[in-house]
C-alpha cells in the first residue's frame, strides 16, 4: 500500500525538479525585466524593487542604442514578405513534385534533398559577397531575398501532405476539363489548410529567430536598420550592458510572447514533419 503512494509521488517530484531546472532562466528573464536596477543584478536572483519602467522605456524613450519599436517594425516587415514568398515557393514546388509527373522530377528531388542538407551557415560568406556586389547589404530587401530565395528546398513536408490528397479528386477535375493551374488553385490549395498554416508560421518565424545572417548583412552600425535580434544583442555590448541589461530582458520577453504563441500552434505539425519526411524519402 505504501509503495503505491510513494512511487507516483517520486515520479512527479522528479518531473517537478526537471521543470524547475528548465524554467529557471525563463523565470530569471521575467524577473529581471521588471527590475528597477538596470544592470545585471549579481547578488540577488529576484530584484529588490519591481517596476514597469523597462517596458515603458523600450517604447517611450528610444535612443540611439534602443530603438525597439523600430526594430520590431523592421523585423515584422521582413517576416511578412519572407512569409509570402516562402509560402508560395514551398506550395508550388510541393505541387509540382507531388501532383505532376515529368521527366526531371526524380533528379530534381534528389538534388533538392542534397542541397537542403547543407546548412545555410556554410554559404553565408559567399551570400554576403553576392549581396555586396549587387549593393543589397544593409537593406531589408536583401534580407528578404536571403530568407526566402532558398525556401523552395523546404518543400518535403508540404509534399507529404499533398500526397495524401486523393488522386481521384484531381482526375475528376481533369475529366471536367480543368487545367493543372486550376486544379492547383481551386482544388489542392483549399484542401491544404493545415499545411499552409504550418508553412506560413514557420517561414514567418525564421526572421525573428535568425541571428547570423542579420548580423552579417546589417553591419552598418546604424541602429534604425536593425532587426530585433541584432538590436537586443547590441544592448549587451560591454559598454552598454550596465545600463541596458534589464531593458534587454524586457525586449526579450516582448519578442518571446508572440513567438511562443505561434510556436505552440506550429508544434504539432513540427513533429509530423520531422518523422513523416523520413519514412517517405
Amino acid at each position: 500500500m505504501m509503495k503505491k503512494v510513494v512511487k507516483p509521488v517520486i515520479r512527479h517530484l522528479v518531473l517537478a525538479l526537471l521543470a524547475v531546472i528548465w524554467l529557471i532562466p525563463i523565470v530569471w528573464l521575467l524577473a529581471t525585466s521588471f527590475s528597477s536596477y538596470q544592470g545585471i543584478n549579481i547578488s540577488h536572483f529576484f530584484p529588490e524593487k519591481f517596476t514597469f519602467n523597462n517596458y515603458l522605456m523600450l517604447f517611450g524613450a528610444a535612443d540611439t542604442v534602443a530603438q525597439f519599436p523600430r526594430w520590431f517594425m523592421n523585423t515584422f516587415l521582413i517576416a511578412i514578405f519572407t512569409c509570402i514568398i516562402s509560402t508560395c515557393f514551398v506550395l508550388m514546388v510541393a505541387y509540382a513534385t507531388s501532383c505532376m509527373r515529368f521527366k526531371a522530377r526524380k533528379p530534381l528531388m534528389n538534388v533538392g534533398i542534397i542541397l537542403g542538407m547543407f546548412p545555410g551557415v556554410l554559404s553565408m560568406i559567399a551570400v554576403y559577397f553576392v549581396l555586396k556586389s549587387i549593393g543589397l547589404t544593409n537593406s531589408h530587401f536583401g534580407m528578404v531575398l536571403v530568407y526566402s530565395a532558398g525556401s523552395g528546398l523546404g518543400y518535403l513536408i508540404a509534399k507529404g501532405f499533398f500526397d495524401t490528397i486523393p488522386v481521384s479528386l484531381r482526375e475528376a477535375a481533369k475529366l471536367e476539363g480543368a487545367s493543372e493551374a486550376t486544379i492547383f488553385t481551386k482544388i489542392v490549395i483549399p484542401l491544404s489548410g493545415p499545411i499552409i498554416v504550418y508553412t506560413v508560421i514557420s517561414s514567418f518565424l525564421s526572421p525573428w529567430m535568425d541571428f547570423v545572417y542579420a548580423k552579417l548583412i546589417l553591419n552598418s552600425g546604424i541602429s534604425t536598420d536593425w532587426t530585433v535580434a541584432i538590436g537586443l544583442y547590441n544592448m549587451l555590448d560591454r559598454s552598454l550592458i550596465n545600463t541596458y541589461f534589464s531593458r534587454f530582458c524586457a525586449g526579450g520577453v516582448l519578442v518571446s510572447i508572440p513567438i511562443s504563441a505561434l510556436f505552440v500552434i506550429m508544434q504539432k505539425f513540427y513533429v509530423e514533419g520531422v518523422t513523416g519526411g523520413s519514412v517517405k524519402g
Binding site: 505532376m100 547543407f118 559567399a126 523552395g152
Partner: peptide
C-alpha cells in the same frame, strides 16, 4: 505547368545557394 511553378524557386536556389557555393 511544372515549368511555370518551378522556375522561380529553382532560380532562387541557383542564385542564393549554388552560385555562392
Amino acid at each position: 505547368f511544372h515549368i511555370t511553378i518551378l522556375a522561380l524557386p529553382v532560380l532562387g536556389v541557383v542564385i542564393f545557394t549554388i552560385v555562392p557555393l
